[in-house]
């Protein structure tokens, strides 16, 4: 079967590229578009490090056939910081709270947190745990990640009040 042209909105900008049938969104991001934040951990939906937002919802991009999402809006970690490089609340909280070690899970953790906080500005600890339950971290023991997401929620609420 022939490759098809896929058009997406990627981090707010139009993107167009060629994809062979069955190509995953993750492969397209990394191999066709050069966006390397989403990682290829297990390539079977078990580790969560390839998580990106598809029309605002977190998905494991290794499981999404890219030709099925023609015209969709995709957000990756590269599109989280402001255009001038200023980090957003989740990124700042991860940095300040040292919620990372080797960094391999971090992109997925941050994208899940972005999605959680967009819909729930004041999550409980249990809600944070549930949100990241599909994301594996082998270094941190998770406690610093949970704390950082709760901290990010506080930061976002304070900004919203001001």
């Amino acid at each position: 079967m022939a490759s098809t042209v896929v058009s997406l909105r990627l981090n707010g900008r139009p993107a167009e590229f060629l994809a062979r049938p069955g190509t995953s969104l993750l492969s397209s991001l990394r191999d066709s578009l050069g966006l390397m934040a989403a990682k290829r951990g297990c390539a079977q939906g078990g580790c969560g490090t390839c998580t990106v937002l598809l029309d605002g919802r977190p998905v494991m991009s290794c499981l999404v056939a890219v030709e099925t999402i023609e015209g969709a809006s995709v957000r990756t970690l590269e599109g989280v910081a402001a255009d001038d490089g200023r980090l957003d609340a989740v990124q700042s909280a991860f940095l300040d709270g040292f919620a990372t070690q080797c960094g391999f899970c971090t992109a997925g953790m941050i994208m899940v947190a972005e999605s959680l906080l967009a819909g729930n500005p004041d999550p409980s600890r249990d809600e944070v745990v549930e949100a990241i339950s599909g994301n594996v971290c082998r270094c941190t023991g998770y406690a610093s990640i949970i704390a950082a997401i709760l901290d990010a929620a506080r930061r976002k609420r304070e900004v919203d009040v001001v």
Partner: peptide, 9 residues
């Protein structure tokens, strides 16, 4: 991080 991540492991 190493101590608590290692304890988790």
């Amino acid at each position: 991080q190493q101590v608590e991540g290692g304890a988790w492991m």
